[in-house]
Structure formats: C-alpha cells, structure tokens
Design a protein around this nucleic acid. Structure first.
Lengths: 335, 335
DNA sequence: TGTATAAATGTCAACGTTTACATTAAAATT
DNA sequence: AATTTTAATGTAAACGTTGACATTTATACA
C-alpha cells in the first residue's frame, strides 16, 4: 500500500495543500488543524517523497562531489568536511570517486547533472575543460577544489602549494643541505607544478644550481615514491636530503628507505608535503607541510552553497580563487 | 531556457515517447528516427532528468550508506568498495557520516528514506532498533555491515572478529608471552565483544587465567589507545605483550609507547587488529590481523543489489549473515 | 491493388509534490 | 446584524518523465 500526501490528507480530512504547508512549517495553519495533520502523519508513518518534491521545486538539496580517490587520507578528509557543512545547510552529498581518471570524471559529471544536483565540488583531473565550460555556461554551480583546469574560469579553493614547498625546502637548506632531491607529482596539475616551483625557488634564492638528476617526476602514488626514491638513492652521487610532494609518495619513499636500510636523519635528511599522525610516530618523525585540508573542504562547500543561493562570491563577475596557507611543522628528520 | 524531453521531441519532430525509447535503448525505433533523435539530443545538450524518471519509475538507482566515520581508514575503504560495486550496477551512492552517533544515524535513515533510495548499507551504532525494524517491515532493503543490532533481524556481512583476535593472541602466547594486555573496543558492539572473546579463548585454551587488570575497555578511537596503553604500561606489573583491537587505537598506543621510550619487541610484544601500510614500515613492523575490508564492502553491496532486484539471498526467509575471514600477518613485533 | 499483419510512433494519465490563485470561514468593524 | 477585512483552507496545474494502450505507417501477401 502506498502512502503519500493524499493518504495523509484523507486521513486528516484536509487538502494536500494543507499537508504540504504543515510539512514545511508554513504559517497560516490553525493549531488545531496542524495537530490533526501531525497525528495522521505519525499514524501512517508518512515520510515526504523528496523525489517528487525535488521535481516540483526544481531543487534537490543535494550536492555532488567528485574526488580523486577516497582511499587517500586527503580526500577522505575532504569528503568528511564537505559532508559536514553540506548537512549543516540541509544538503545531502553524493560522493563520486573520480579515481583521477578523466573518463570517470566525465561520466560522473553527467550523472550529477542528470540527477540535478544543486551544485558540484570538483577536484578536477584537468581534462574535460570543454564539458565543464558547457556546464558552467548553462548555469551549473561548480566550485573547484585543490586544483585548477586549463581553459576553465571557475571559482576555486586551493592551497598555496608553491609557498608550502618553498618553506620546507628552505628549511632543508637552512639546515645545511645542498644536494636536495625532489619527488614531484604530475606537473600538469597545479599541485604538482606548484610544489616543484617552490622547491626551485628555494634553491635559486640560496644560489644552488638546479640539477635535473635530483628532480624525479612522480604520479602522487605510493608506487612513484617507492621507485623514484630508489632511483635517487641508488645513484652513487645521491642527494643528502629529500623532499617528497605528497603523503602517498612519502609512504612509498619510506618503504624504499627502510628496504635500503638507510636511517633518517643520519643518512638522509627529509621533509615532505602533507602530514599524517603516522609520520609523526616514525622513528624519526618527518618534518612536514601541513595542508588545511578540513578548511579546504568546508570553505569550498560554504562557497558553493552561497553560489547556489545566488549570492555573489567573487567581485564583478570574475571567478574568485581562494588560496589557503600551509604550515610547516618541524620534526626530527634533519641533522 | 529549460530543456526537457519535450524540447527534444519538438526539435526531432517526434513524440516524447519516442525520445524516451531512444534514451533507454528500447527496440522498435527505426534507425533513421533514432539518428534524428540523437542529433537533437546532442544539439540541445539534453540530459535526462533523473529526478522525474525516478518519480515515475519509483526507482532511484541510488543506494545510501551510513558509515561510522569516513576519516578512519576502515570506513573509507568501505566507502570506496561500495561505490565501486554500486556504480558497476548503475547505482549512485549517497554517503552519510553517522559519526557513530545514534541520533545522526536516525536522522540519516530518515533522509535516505525520504529520498527513496533503493537500498541502504548500514554500519549500525546498535541503537534505533525500533525504527530500523519499522523500515524493514515496510519492505526497505537494508544490509548491515560489520556489526549487528540487538533485536533486529537483518541480512548482514561481518568479519570473524573472534577468530581473528584469537589467532593474534594465540600467536603471542606461542611466542612465549603470558601476561598479555588487551585494549578492547566498545563491548556492546559485536566487533568489540568478538575481539575480546577471541582474546579470552586464546588465554583459556593456554590455561592462562583471566586477569581483569590487563583488560582495558576502549572506544575504538585514538584517544583510548593513548590513555589505556598508558594505564597498562605504567603499572609496575605491566603486561609483556599487548593486543590492540583496531587501527585507530593502535595509533594511540604507538604514540604512548614512543612517548614512554619503549621499544618493540624488546620491551613489549605486540599484535593488533587491522592492518595499514604505515604499521608495516615502523621500526618494528607490527603483527596484524588483516580484515578483508574491501570484500566486506563489495559483498554487502552485491547482496544489497540482489535484494533490490528481488532475488532471495537467504534461505527460507531467514536473514543471511555472511562472515568473512581474517588473516594474520606476522611481522616483527614479538621476541 | 487491396487487405492482413507487423512495426513504428503517438496519446495521455500517472508518479507525489508544491504553489498561484480561488474560495470559504472567522474575526473585526460599522 | 450586515459588511468589510483577514485568516484558513481548497483547487488544480505544473514539474519531466514513463508506459499502457491506441493509432498510424510500412511491409508482406494474396
């Protein structure tokens, strides 16, 4: 037996409009009527059909989020912070795992559009610029998170990758290291590129010439950490210190370092981008650049909800790009 | 300007029914017509309105999942595996962060019901039995994951907690430890209780009397690990080995152990429930019970989708409870 | 060429709400 | 008590699909 607003109306002896008004706490319903309606609702175990409501109101109170990979700590924190804020404002969240794969990203963008989500938070792969521009032009509410897309003008919330990496590498230099290796991420992402740039700026300010043998280009995955660390450290002329561009690659680097039997900081100085409680309880806890991951997620969500509500968040129609700062936490991974 | 199936129909010069047929790849549309329709669709950038479709079909192709806390590795793996399987079958996933809070759980159950999700995967807090029973009685499709609820008969996918803990503690005993401490989780959860029972069974089989001073009841959170490890290890008559019941508490335990300057395995033997790559690169990598977390999520989702499709998954109307096995991986945390 | 059959397409109600507008009932004013 | 004003409730169309059924068009057959 199907229970809908009509059943409730019949039971309470009023019209569906009145039920609707009670459901949404509209004024202008007599207290007595309201009581009767609520009674009917509870007796029938009625729960509004949000699908029908969404159709009628052209509003789903749902936001979609496409992340790179929920398995990585970074994205799971993002997911949580987005969900927290979303629910605070009465929104649901559909989580999509883009897997850093442009095709999956595209598929999910379409799914989210089909489901008429009110807004989308996207950690872009950097591709699909055409489709995303089309979305934006048809008035879709989108906020980019963590990364930008070439050829797309869109509000975004980022982290100051360049400055973060700069601080870490400068710290290594200040501690006396000169030959500093770096494992970067994808250089076609603002994150990967920015961190490399920070590294280069620190070197150049210190008058240390760039040595391409010390620059290894990774993919932000554990495997890159394992392999590239090995390449760097097996070199007879190996670096004295290492800067790793994210947490997953740091895990990989530590695996290799352990395997090679090297000790930090005696055999190798280290500093890394991204923090985790686990790297703080290592033998030699690692000096790390802490991203404000939680704020990233919540700031983006707040901005998105403002956009959804039609509030301007940038000035004079330019997209607004919010850049959050990082923190360097000094631990025990340098001499 | 709003684009809907009518716009496409007008543009292609056919009726909406035909558009609908093309959209869903129904047979019986002439090739020529289909071409024309597809052209109109692409020219208008039309994307079906899944909300309207859901309303009409009384089917949302969405499943909801309520997890304890996405921040913990366990749940983020669950979220990913559920999402993978769901999408394989064409379902979306709404992720809800129950925060192990019965009230939030209840709120989310209602939200998911209002949104008419086709099914729910629930990692239950153990409360809300009444409401959940009502849901089940009104034919909601639910699969419990990881834990059961007192007073609720429902399909579930679990891990053999008792056996897992037993294997780990037996291993400690086999290595010669007698005074073994345990940090448990909530004992009103099947997970917490099961792991304690495994511990107790291993002791009793070895003829080691139970010592309540060695049993500390935690909350599955880092803080419990920190505090209870301290309590155990500050005791002059402290245990020779320690079994910790989950990963978050293991992190806490390691923090305390590091703080106290103790070395594993010299000063303390250890075995833990839950694995992580981080505990495998510690100084002394920890012997751990590995849960098949990914299978937990995918098995539950497969079961849920079967239920949704009306396939019986248990026998003679009894709920089916699937229990997955754990693995003990021996590392270097014992003498 | 006309008719029977099969294939393709069209029509319209239904899904469960909300909301502009219309109507009725109650309260205020004379 | 009759009239105006205000408050409470009802009516019905709309949101964008789908799908049972009806109708038209194409094909096969005599």
């Amino acid at each position: 037996m199907k229970i809908n607003i009509k059943s409730v109306a019949d039971k309470a002896g009023v019209s569906t409009a009145t039920i609707s008004r009670v459901l949404r706490n509209y004024p202008g319903v007599r207290e007595k009527t309201k009581k009767r309606v609520l009674k009917a609702i509870s007796e029938l175990d009625y729960e509004v059909n949000a699908v029908a409501r969404s159709l009628r109101q052209r509003k789903t109170f749902t936001i979609g989020i496409i992340v790179g990979n929920v398995l990585s700590q970074f994205y799971s924190i993002i997911a949580k912070s987005v969900e927290d804020v979303a629910h605070k404002y009465g929104y649901n969240m559909i989580l999509c795992n883009g897997d850093d794969d442009p095709e999956k990203e595209l598929r999910y963008l379409k799914v989210l559009k089909a489901n008429r989500v009110d807004g989308i938070i996207l950690t872009p792969t950097g591709k699909n610029a055409d489709y995303i521009n089309r979305l934006i032009n048809t008035d879709a509410k989108i906020v980019l998170l963590d990364r930008l897309i070439d050829g797309v003008e869109c509000d975004a919330v980022l982290v100051d990758n360049e400055e973060g990496a700069y601080k870490a590498v400068k710290y290594l230099i200040d501690r006396g290291y000169r030959r500093i290796g770096i494992i970067t991420g994808y250089l076609d992402r603002t994150t990967g590129k920015g961190r490399l740039n920070g590294y280069l700026r620190a070197l150049s300010e210190a008058g240390i010439p760039r040595d391409d043998n010390l620059i290894k280009i990774g993919k932000f995955k554990k495997r890159s950490g394992i392999e590239l660390t090995r390449e760097l450290l097996q070199d007879p002329n190996r670096p004295e210190a290492l800067f790793v561009s994210n947490l997953d690659m740091t895990l990989g680097a530590m695996i290799t370092i352990k395997e090679m039997g090297l000790k930090i900081p005696d055999d190798l100085g280290m500093a890394v981008f991204d923090d985790s409680e686990w790297i703080s309880i290592l033998d030699s806890p690692l000096t790390a650049v802490i991203q404000p991951v939680h704020s990233l997620g919540s700031t983006a969500t707040e901005a998105l909800i403002k956009k959804i509500n039609g509030e301007k968040i940038g000035m004079n129609d330019k997209p607004i790009i919010i850049t959050l700062n990082t923190n360097l936490v000094i631990r025990n991974s340098t001499k």
